[in-house]
């Protein structure tokens, strides 16, 4: 069963403040992802991989087409739903692991990581247990947990980001170059975590430049072509 069904999605950026120049970035992109499958978006730079991934999260808008996802309420088209509904879908259905941590001042690593599961109303002991597991697996020492990530290295911040994004077991998981700033050992940890997500039935869509990760995780590649 497809958890994600992208149908003929197109997008053109219009830069109004630069003479209205148009930059077509996607043209009739279509693919499906089933539960337990990992599809890697493939193609040279500028072919809209990141844009497409962000559209699956409602972060970027589609000009036309449909993005159908399977939620607890049935099949919904992310292109057409109300923004308020998208907020709920982000909470319960679709998770996004970005390339960098968006730093919020003064909030501790622990609270940053716990927030997505707390927001769902989960019991604090369950939240704490899961946070502990993820932080430990991602090799973040306990001494850092009470500190705000603002002063951490890029790699440490990204591991906090990954821990946070994996707290909730989303049916759909989106990954945008999650390991770009990590060393080999931590890349291995992340690969393992993604495999586990796949095994529990999540539909995974990712952008990886690392060939090793790609070949290990991808069930299929979806190749994007230039929309020009």
């Amino acid at each position: 069963m497809s958890l994600i069904d992208v149908r003929s999605v197109s997008k053109t950026f219009i830069l109004h403040n630069q003479g209205g120049v148009q930059l077509p970035v996607l043209r009739n992109a279509s693919f499906q992802v089933t539960a337990g499958e990992c599809v890697v978006l493939d193609g040279p730079s500028g072919t809209g991989k990141s844009t497409l991934l962000k559209m699956l999260y409602g972060n970027y808008r589609a000009d036309s087409g449909q993005i159908l996802v399977q939620t607890a309420s049935g099949i919904e088209d992310l292109v057409a739903i109300h923004p308020h509904r998208m907020l709920q879908i982000r909470r319960d259905t679709v998770g996004f692991v970005s390339q960098f941590l968006r730093v919020i001042p003064r909030v501790s690593t622990w609270d940053v990581v716990c927030e997505p599961l707390r927001r769902q109303g989960a019991d604090e002991s369950i939240v704490a247990e899961r946070a502990r597991q993820l932080l430990q697996r991602l090799n973040l020492p306990q001494s850092l947990w009470s500190l705000a990530p603002a002063t951490f290295s890029g790699g440490e911040q990204q591991r906090v980001n990954i821990a946070r994004s994996l707290m909730v077991e989303y049916p759909i998981l989106l990954l945008d170059e999650p390991t770009a700033s990590l060393d080999a050992a931590n890349r291995e940890v992340v690969a393992r975590l993604i495999e586990e997500a796949r095994q529990r039935g999540a539909a995974v869509v990712g952008i990886f430049h690392d060939d090793g990760l790609r070949s290990r995780l991808a069930d299929r590649l979806y190749a994007l072509e230039s929309a020009q």
Partner: peptide, 19 residues
Amino acid sequence: ETGLTDQVLDDPQAAYTQQ
């Protein structure tokens, strides 16, 4: 223009919003 905060700030549609 109206939409999710990150969408409006990351993918602004209207000329004024882009500005």
